[in-house]
Design a protein around this nucleic acid. Structure first.
Lengths: 268, 268
DNA sequence: GCAAAAGGTATCGCAAAGCGATACGGTCGT
DNA sequence: ACGACCGTATCGCTTTGCGATACCTTTTGC
């Protein structure tokens, strides 16, 4: 049995909120400190935070002090270093509550969950990646992968390819070119042309299928979600297990449902 | 049908991350701006943010600028004011990933979910409130109330009373005294003595039951989760509908399961 | 349709706020 | 027992970010 307490995802090199170090607001520094935890595997000490954030030790010291007394950072119970604090969840909640896209998608996604019986989720595009904003587990949701905020690259996910398919071809190619193409699983496509071929398929079909592009044994179907102007803002996923489905039957069963769901969102 | 896109919870006056305005770090100011959204019902303009955060317009202007280019804030698509940004989810994920308590509770909670078939969740204590850190919907999870980061008061929730029961009596009384006792539903207890009586019951039984203390039609069972020293750090909830259960049968069915689950966590 | 109000953006100089450097005590690991 | 590292504290210098102010655009009210 695998350790479900740790994210099942491979060591996704978290697409770091890179700051164009141009603007050196002190507020940005605060978030630099918090962002130091993005790649982290455990608690970080002051020194580690300083190293990861590129800030001086004194600066980190003061910033950590503030963040701690505000509840955005806390000491590890075992007294080894620091950890992100509970208050961060308050802001995540505000994001979900107030986001109009999420409000629009939520009911549709719940219906889709009921209709498919599989795991469904909604993710929003952020440059080269998709960030999961809403997730509904299936009954047999083994995964700790129901965590909000997880992000995956556009180039090797069903939703990502669905999104790319709704962008001008040169733009899609540019995105793939800017992405670091990592073979997460043995079957991950890393050849730009091969990826673009899949994107083209997705554009025509209106949905994309990805088989174990990131996690072994997983199959996912993605459809794009558009804004009023027709630009893709994110994607809806239906995810299942290859132990139960093959690509054809998965698509036959769920593509119509998923596309109907997305369609309800996209017109208007 | 109710509008499930809006939180089903009553207008919970969000226990605001109050800052003792002593430390006036500029980093704290950044979070003051983000915290302005806690009570908000929609997008906020610069002026509104300034008013809610108690900062000057110029300060807000600059801070918003920074937050926006970092992705922690964005403009409303309809071009009305500002909204929390996607990057906030990255930090929420770090919190969940790295938190040792959550890692400890997760597998147990998933088992409990399977065993009960009802909605289960784990919440952590933050002063006067419990913040939901993990949630697993039931099949008939109508609610958008599966959102992480939602918080509820200690005094009127099953988990809260379970937590209070593991604190010294004077401490529990002090917490209730400091809480603003609001009758969210018609049946919410607001008399301190009555609440303390429930807390005492919870202490003896090892679990607490709360019937529609916040949301009408909901019944919840809470058991405390302790750290190594025996102090309560949070609670596990099992939540169901009064349409299907009465308090007695709910307790008979789920108290043993929930207490076993918590027990597995609490020893050691 | 016009006046008034509010929203967003920009500039600029002064004061305060935060960083760098440095030093100290405690704890871990070898 | 020693050295490395971690967290804490102090203290000037300088940088940074705030307040005041002004301008333009959009919305509100009549």
């Amino acid at each position: 049995m695998t350790d479900i307490t740790r994210p099942v995802l491979p060591p996704l090199p978290v697409p770091a909120p890179q700051d164009d170090a141009l603007f050196v607001d002190s507020i940005a520094r605060g978030f630099r400190v918090l962002s130091a935890f993005h790649g982290a595997a455990g608690p970080l000490s002051l020194g580690e935070i300083a190293a990861r954030s590129g800030l001086g030790k004194s600066a980190v010291q003061r910033i950590v002090h503030t963040l701690r007394q505000q509840g955005y950072l806390r000491r590890d119970p075992g007294d080894r270093g620091y950890l992100p604090g509970l208050r961060l969840l308050d802001h995540a909640l505000d994001y979900q509550r107030l986001n109009p896209e999420i409000a629009r998608v939520l009911p549709v996604l719940m219906e889709l969950r009921a209709a498919t019986g599989e795991r469904v989720d909604f993710s929003l595009r952020d440059d080269l990646r998709l960030v999961y904003a809403l997730r509904f587990q299936s009954k047999r949701g083994f995964y700790a992968a129901s965590l909000i905020g997880t992000s995956v690259p556009l180039y090797c996910t069903a939703g990502g390819r669905a999104v790319l398919g709704r962008l001008p071809e040169d733009e899609a190619a540019a995105i793939i070119a800017r992405s670091t193409l990592i073979p997460y699983s043995g079957r991950t496509l890393t050849d730009p042309d091969a990826i673009m071929a899949r994107v083209a398929e997705a554009r025509e079909a209106g949905f994309a299928i990805a088989e174990e592009q990131i996690v072994a044994g997983e199959i996912a179907l993605g459809v794009p979600v558009l804004d009023e102007t027709g630009h893709p803002i994110g994607a809806i996923h239906v995810a299942g297990s290859l132990a139960e489905w093959d690509a054809d039957s998965f698509a036959r069963n769920f593509a119509p449902l998923a596309m109907t769901a997305a369609g309800a969102l996209n017109r208007r």
